[in-house]
Design a protein around this nucleic acid. Sequence first.
DNA 1: TTGTAGGCGTTATCAG
DNA 2: CTGATAACGCCTACAA
Lengths: 351, 351
Amino acid sequence: MADLARELGVSMTTVSRALSDHFSIGPEMKLKVQKLAKKYNYQPNRMASALRKGQSKLLGIIVPYLEGRFFPKVVRGMETAASRAGYNVVICQSNEDLTHERRNIESLLSAQVAGILVSVSRTTDDFRHFEKVRGRGLPLVFFDRMMPGDALNAVVLDDREGGYLATRHLLAQGGRRVAHFGGLQQLTIYRNRYQGYRDALAEAGLPVEEELTYFGDNTEEAGAEAMRRWLALPNPPDAVFAAGDYAALGAMQEAERQGLVVPTDMAVGGFSNETFTPIAKPSITTVDQRCDEMGQAAVRLLLELIDAQAQGLDFASRQLVLRPELIIRESSQRLGRLSPTPEPLADAAVQ
Amino acid sequence: MADLARELGVSMTTVSRALSDHFSIGPEMKLKVQKLAKKYNYQPNRMASALRKGQSKLLGIIVPYLEGRFFPKVVRGMETAASRAGYNVVICQSNEDLTHERRNIESLLSAQVAGILVSVSRTTDDFRHFEKVRGRGLPLVFFDRMMPGDALNAVVLDDREGGYLATRHLLAQGGRRVAHFGGLQQLTIYRNRYQGYRDALAEAGLPVEEELTYFGDNTEEAGAEAMRRWLALPNPPDAVFAAGDYAALGAMQEAERQGLVVPTDMAVGGFSNETFTPIAKPSITTVDQRCDEMGQAAVRLLLELIDAQAQGLDFASRQLVLRPELIIRESSQRLGRLSPTPEPLADAAVQ
DNA sequence: TTGTAGGCGTTATCAG
DNA sequence: CTGATAACGCCTACAA
């Protein structure tokens, strides 16, 4: 910058102002400076700028992992919204690990991000690192997985609704004994999906039977194990709603290994609309999580917080809830005629 | 930091040195400072530090996208290696778009990263932004997809070998007319996979027939379109090696839609070991890309470059080539007896 | 072993 | 409209 100033015979102040399009600089001066900057390939040092201004155009994102369909899609949505507002993003993976998550927070604080978007790790049971962020006055928005409490900003999916829609659909397809593969219940998302399952059963006048619920990791192995247990029961289920697609797949495969036909003997529904769900045979009915919307909404909320803070305003904390979408595929469609139920329930989601 | 110094009645220098574990500070002083820092929850401002030292502990990563299995896995490998060396990473997506890629480079330069790891976008045909990075003396390592030229550092997969192994396997399974779905040939990886295909054909004394090659995007639709064309030929192929798993899947599905049985009538091999390949029915034979190794190797190479540069040494540019692994699944295994070939070629990869 | 002083590249303030 | 100056938080010669 000093070079530019010297070459043009003006001060650094003028150069700085011309480059940041300050109103007090004449248009022809601006043009001259900007042209020379381009010629010399001048690159502003944002560290220095952030240091001086105490604020960077950087948003921090913490996700548990990047594998799978959900988080990459959400991150893409975030990047879209962020770059529209002139922000860049830094992505960190917590690897579903509390220690990692703490380190991620430290990194982002040290990187002087303008705000943090976080989806809490599965194993996190201590939330002081998040309190620290708020203590510093740094805007914080949770997405998909939030910490407990209600004075916080978050964008989440209505997981209960998702579980409810999926289970109701299985019942409407003639399921009389619908089992549930639940995720680890310390995560709100899994508790809510379970709640949706129970709500749908209650609505149909059915009891929640403990022998028909199984909680575990969302993996094929766990899904298969659950199915093995269920099929060993005197009165096994005829449908399963799994809180994750991997478990749904594992359960489906195990049922088939044991000679059952899906969906005729065993209807299956999952959660997340993973890439493989339309590809599996039969293709898997699942719940879509509105990834892109979630990412964009989370960034918009964060930017509002940042703006409010810059203006010294108080901002009431807000939680956005997105409605999930049930995607009906082969693994659950008994097509009526095969249904063992005399009077299937109505299913509004089926066209 | 000034607060700490005041409270302890020492200078900021002492505090700074105590915190960075400088040798000239007494152990009891260090302890005192560090305890107080913890108490006040002192967080070093890395922007200021980076500004002063002209170097940050930040590595920039540019990937075309994060969806799918490959890039998340590579990034995970990178994070592992980076964090071992005390570095953090910033991830950017170029979205397979040159303009985006240029912006990513600018962002990373402005963020004062210590080095950049990049996998080039598919549409990039102008490489000046990379030259600019090297012009600044910033270490640059390509992974998986590199720019043309040879005075550069890169970690790549031996894509030719992957194409060769897959094609040779299809031939060994009795394929007599093996078709190839190739990716866009402006990317070296796809040219190399095509080359491997041709090498395997040549080794088996077979000609490369133009009507049996099709180039397109790695999507299900393109794969299906290719298969439609091939099946309309007077003498259609009996096996396909696709340079991507999505295309392999699309081709396989189209073949089945037209009444063929995979692998009996049509053997199929893909590339990338995507998550869905073991799940599809039949499961898809594919080539694994050693994601984790690639990520770790790329970071190690970058760190060596950074070190060499810090010591003012010259570093001969280096290209690491990883060997891919052929993963044989159902979509290609004709199990000998079904093979229409009288004398199948030997296939070392089959156990 | 500790302190002093100057500067990394930018920008806000205040004075022309 | 433009310029001089100080400061952001940290690090490191150099001096003590």
